[in-house]
Amino acid sequence: MSTSADFVRANTRLAPVPFLPELVLHQADEPIELWERTEEGGAEQPPPFWAFAWAGGQALARHVLDEPELVAGRHVLDLATGSGLVAVAAARAGARPVTANDIDPFSLAAAEANAAANRVRLELLEADLLADGYDDAAVVLAGDVFYSREMAGRVLPFLRRAAGRGALVLVGDPGRAYLPVDGMVRRATYDVPVIEALESVPVRRTSVWQVQTGR
């Protein structure tokens, strides 16, 4: 993963997370420039979701850090981990083990670098779990996964199956267009600082939802 790790470090700067000052994250200084550069790379280089602290992830990480009993001593899966921020927060809150999952090797390289920067350990899993399934985790965390119709259509059945088998399933989301709230209960709401160049606003009202049913 050395090439991916080098790319991550070359295009980001280690800095505190606005809503989680106790954590640091490799973040892009020029988000639009990096996004355009990865788009030019075509299929070989997907969008750099790993280079930013998205609102849903920040809210979910804050919730886990403030209520560590949700994850402490439990196997946590951070689905579509992106930067690994939520996984790092879960590990800091005492979760063991913490599996950070994504299909993008750059994301897993970022998650590994961010885990090291925060002195926690993550297990990295590059796989499409929405197709393959994953029944090992007692807690499933998913930040900002409802950003497209296609993704929502795939991730919701996975989350509901996890809830149906008894896992605690928590979703962080700032009200994306494809967030389905049926079968979910709002646990907390935060005003989260975000990158205005990406979100068009400096702050996003963001909620943490619990998926309650497997239907």
Score class of each variant (00 low, 15 high):
R149Y: 04
D128E: 11
A91K: 03
S83V: 10
N11P: 05
N114A: 08
P202S: 11
T38N: 02
L70I: 11
T12F: 04
T38W: 06
V88E: 00
I32C: 02
L14Y: 13
I103R: 11
A131Q: 14
D29I: 10
G42V: 11
G164I: 07
V203N: 03
R160W: 02
A5T: 15
G42R: 12
V211D: 00
A28L: 07
T206P: 02
L125T: 04
R9D: 04
D135R: 13
E22N: 06
Y178H: 15
A177D: 15
S4G: 04
N118V: 13
D136K: 12
A51R: 10
N118Y: 12
W50A: 10
W35H: 11
P48H: 09
V145R: 01
G42C: 12
L25I: 06
P68I: 13
A61E: 03
R13V: 14
G73Q: 08
V17W: 00
L130G: 02
S207H: 08
L14R: 14
V120T: 14
L20F: 01
V24A: 14
E33R: 15
D132G: 04
A87C: 06
Q45V: 15
L198T: 07
L25F: 01
G153I: 08
R13Q: 14
T12Q: 06
R37K: 12
A10K: 09
R92F: 08
L65A: 11
R160M: 03
V71I: 06
L168N: 09
V192T: 10
L25W: 02
V98T: 07
G94Q: 06
G82Q: 05
V208C: 01
A152Y: 03
V71M: 07
V169R: 01
G172Y: 00
L125H: 06
D6M: 11
F158H: 00
L77W: 02
G183A: 08
L179M: 15
L129P: 02
S107A: 15
P21N: 11
L170W: 05
G42Y: 08
L125Y: 02
L70Q: 09
R186G: 05
A93W: 06
G166W: 06
L70N: 03
N101E: 07
F7T: 13
M184A: 10
P174V: 07
R186W: 03
D6R: 13
F7M: 10
G82K: 03
D128H: 12
A87S: 08
M184I: 04
Q212L: 15
R160T: 01
T189Y: 02
V203W: 04
V88L: 05
T3P: 14
F146S: 06
P174H: 07
R154T: 03
V17N: 04
G82Y: 01
L198S: 05
A162W: 00
A110E: 02
G56P: 01
A177W: 08
V8P: 03
G214W: 03
V64G: 01
A100K: 00
R187D: 02
G41N: 08
S2D: 15
N101T: 06
A43M: 14
D102Q: 06
G82R: 03
R165I: 06
E30C: 05
V201M: 07
A95S: 10
P97D: 11
A5N: 02
R121P: 06
R13P: 05
P68N: 09
L77Q: 01
A53H: 00
E22D: 12
Q210G: 03
V201A: 11
